[in-house]
C-alpha cells in the first residue's frame, strides 16, 4: 500500500522544486529558445519568399528580354527588306541612266556618221561634177574640131530652145 500513498515530504519538495524550475526555465530557457526559433523560422520564411519574388522577377525580365529580342529581330528584318528595296531601286535607276546614256551616245554617233556621210557624198558629188565637166570639155573639144559638127550642135541647141 505504501506504494500508492503520497508522501508529504516528497510532495512538498516536488511542488516547490517544480514551480521554481518552471519559472526559471520559463524565464531563462523557454522564452529565449522559443523566440529565437520563431525568429529563425520567420527569417527563413522571409528568405524563401524573397527568393520566390526574385524568381518571378527574373521570369518577368526573361519575358521582357524575349520581347525585346523579337522586336529587334523584326526591326532587323524590316531594315533588311528596306535595304534590299533600296538596292533594287538604285540598280534599276543605274540601269535606266546607263541605257539612256548609251542611247544618247548612239544617237550622237549616228548623227556624226550621218553628217560625215553627207559630207562625203557632197565631196563625191563635187568631184564627180568636176570630173564630168572635164570629161565633157574634153569630149566637146574633140567633137567641135569639125565645123560641121559645130553647126549641128548649134542647131541642136537652137532646136532645144525653141522647144522650151
Amino acid at each position: 500500500m505504501g506504494l500508492v500513498i503520497p508522501d508529504y515530504g516528497l510532495l512538498f519538495w516536488m511542488a516547490l522544486t517544480f514551480l521554481i524550475v518552471l519559472f526559471i526555465l520559463k524565464k531563462f530557457a523557454w522564452k529565449p529558445i522559443l523566440s529565437s526559433l520563431k525568429e529563425r523560422e520567420d527569417s527563413i520564411e522571409e528568405a524563401l519568399e524573397s527568393a520566390q519574388k526574385a524568381r518571378e522577377e527574373m521570369g518577368k525580365l526573361h519575358a521582357d528580354n524575349e520581347k525585346i529580342l523579337a522586336e529587334a529581330r523584326n526591326e532587323r528584318n524590316e531594315m533588311l527588306k528596306e535595304a534590299k528595296e533600296v538596292k533594287q531601286n538604285i540598280i534599276n535607276e543605274a540601269k535606266n541612266v546607263a541605257a539612256q546614256e548609251a542611247e544618247k551616245m548612239l544617237e550622237t554617233a549616228r548623227q556624226f556618221i550621218e553628217t560625215e556621210k553627207e559630207a562625203a557624198v557632197n565631196d563625191m558629188k563635187e568631184s564627180i561634177a568636176s570630173f564630168s565637166i572635164q570629161i565633157a570639155e574634153k569630149i566637146l573639144r574633140k567633137q567641135l574640131d569639125d565645123p560641121s559638127k559645130q553647126k549641128d550642135l548649134i542647131d541642136q541647141y537652137l532646136k532645144d530652145i525653141k522647144l522650151n
Binding site: M14, F28, A29, I33, S36, L37
Partner: peptide
C-alpha cells in the same frame, strides 16, 4: 527521490539554460 529530483532538475537547468545561451 528528493535527491534524484534535485539532481535531475539541476541537469535540466544546466542543459536548457546553456541551450538558450547558444541560441543567443
Amino acid at each position: 527521490n528528493v535527491f534524484a529530483l534535485f539532481f535531475s532538475v539541476a541537469l535540466m537547468l544546466y542543459i536548457f539554460i546553456s541551450i538558450a545561451k547558444s541560441y543567443k
